[in-house]
Write a protein that binds this DNA or RNA. Structure first.
Lengths: 348, 348
DNA sequence: CTGAAAGCGCTAACAA
DNA sequence: TTGTTAGCGCTTTCAG
């Protein structure tokens, strides 16, 4: 107990050489039925399993793919992780998961570790504040990973520079925001508030841009008074709505709210209810992400679906240089609106 | 590019032996400032990182812990995974995540693989159907893992048998169910329906047991007509409510609903709304899990908090034989009610 | 303080 | 078909 059997033990018990054992176990080489049987028998008796490290050292063995993200519990990250895990499993790879907790230092340490592990690819997930420091850090990761025969995959993050050896998988935040905003506009809304986005964060800013562009294309003037950022997450939805409503003594000067993500939207709905405002009767609300919560709340939330799992899958497919017809190193995934019951059509 | 530098390259460049390089880099042995500097320099120049596999083979290196679960996206599983990952990181371990998709064959294959990886522990998460086959399977895992110097940790799953070498971390499903049901009873409810649990699944059955026991202790007769199982998850909440309501032509013969989990509860609230029934005005609803959705929906859902992350942490702590004063191999974690706004006090 | 050398467990030539 | 043997890259005695 505690000491696992080695290939030598199996060979001894089966009365053959270690090479023969290796061959029948790998199955990649002709062996006589006799030795095969003996070896299999011995292996079973000893409850033998090969040492993956030795195997890896000798140049064979299963490869692994690493996913690094802020946390594992946000539904979007979880979806990406699941996509990576599933696709990796299909390609006979393992998935190593680690969370960075938004700490660049820890991220760096993890990238190093993954390099030591000889992971085939390192997938970094999640929106970030895109500054010069960020770009340089990514470029460095990509370089050192590439030098070690691995590669960097950026998921839902901006690409650092065209010549940096990284794979990038994104989804179109701006287009999605444009689409939901247009949906609201199409339903007759003109005074549309946008809340719950983090200034500086790429994801949030892209969404704001889509919102603004939709407004402009429909000839509706944007108003700073209706823009209420701060950040994603539940808390911010509540605060944003109160901020908006307190300005006008509870008599809203908007008919619809576009929340930066679904949890913000849920919180907004809650806050509205406290002011006696019901959705969609009094105010229409749309969100972003198609988080599970969007389908769970009452009324069902109209939102933008983002392909989390698909991103994860695409990430590993591209990383493995798989069957991607285009052979591109950059991929933009589409989003689409999911219409539920949180938008009311205005009939003027 | 593609060929990583080895310790020999570093030694050559620094003009010392590989042994010296190893010592300097490990830092666990006295070395002269001179060599130290040369080695560090060379390592940096070559962008050298040690090969984790070689290191592991040689008996050193970072250990890893594996988590195997149904999927990564359910919030409870994600929370457990996060707990494992964080605690493991604190103990300087890696976390390998894989999903079984409820397939025993895949589960078996994964346990084998993890054994090959020489993972220090394998954590299995999630409620299951507890039958003889299950017990035997777990016993086998535990044996073969133990034989390989690893160990099995069961999280939120029943223990196989007292003599099986496994660590078990559970939480008290029955007590939690007893508590919320009592909460409802205490608010004056007598006709309490229970929906959304999977017959045969240990988690669900424990919850039903707690519900039944609370009813009995309060002298309230249980009624089969108010028990509507089927399974966890969103779909089932909807169906269950319709089933209940259609039986009585939309005029409910119950005043409260205890849903097997929060997503079922959310779906129930939605279905009730379609019948014109509002929560908590017309019907009170409670859930289980304290899923993020419980806080997000309107009204906030009163539910039972289960310590997902804490379970993950405890799992690795016990697995590593850490600072657990009791030295136990089995641990029952507590749950507690989170009171929000989905229960109305009945004043008769 | 440092170097030489013996493995860790496995795979893959190379011979037989 | 099978055995022998030389590594894979690193750590760690054991000498010096």
């Amino acid at each position: 107990m505690g000491e696992r059997a080695t290939i030598r033990d199996v060979a001894a018990r089966a009365g053959v050489s270690v090479a023969t054992v290796s061959r029948v176990l790998a199955g990649t080489y002709p062996t006589s039925a006799g030795s095969r049987a003996k070896v299999l028998r011995a292996a079973k008796d000893l409850d033998y399993v090969a040492n993956a490290h030795a195997r890896a050292l000798a140049g064979a063995g299963r490869k692994t793919i690493a996913v690094l993200m802020l946390d594992v519990v946000s539904s979007f990250y979880a979806a990406v992780a699941q996509g990576v895990e599933r696709e990796a499993a299909q390609h006979d790879r393992f998935t190593l998961v680690a969370s960075t907790g938004a700490d660049p230092a820890r991220e760096l340490a993890l990238v190093q570790m993954m390099r030591e592990q000889a992971t085939e690819a390192v997938v970094l997930v999640g929106g970030v504040v895109e500054d010069a420091e960020y770009r340089e850090r990514m470029a460095q990761y990509a370089q050192s990973l590439a030098a070690a025969g691995s590669r960097l995959v950026l998921c839902g993050r901006p690409a650092p520079a065209p010549d940096v050896p990284a794979v990038v998988v994104e989804y179109d935040n701006e287009a999605g925001a444009y689409a939901v905003t247009s949906h609201l506009l199409g339903a007759g809304h003109r005074r549309i508030a946008m809340i719950g986005f983090q200034p500086g964060n790429t994801t949030g800013e892209d969404r704001v841009r889509g919102y603004l562009r939709a407004l402009e294309d429909h000839g509706v003037p944007a108003s700073d008074a209706l823009l209420h950022g701060i950040g994603f997450g539940q808390h911010n939805g509540d605060e944003a709505i109160r901020g908006l409503l307190d300005k006008c003594a509870g008599k809203p000067d908007f008919t619809a709210v576009f929340a930066g993500d679904d949890r913000v939207a849920a919180a907004a709905i809650k806050a509205l209810a406290e002011y006696g405002l019901r959705v969609p009767r009094d105010i229409s609300v749309v969100g972003y992400n198609d988080d599970p919560v969007a389908a769970d709340i009452t009324p069902g939330l109209t939102t933008v679906h983002i392909p989390g799992e698909e991103m994860g899958r695409t990430a590993v497919r591209l990383a493995l240089g798989g069957t991607d017809r285009t052979g591109q190193r950059r991929r933009l995934l589409g989003t689409h609106i999911v219409v539920r019951d949180s938008v009311r059509r205005l009939t003027p």
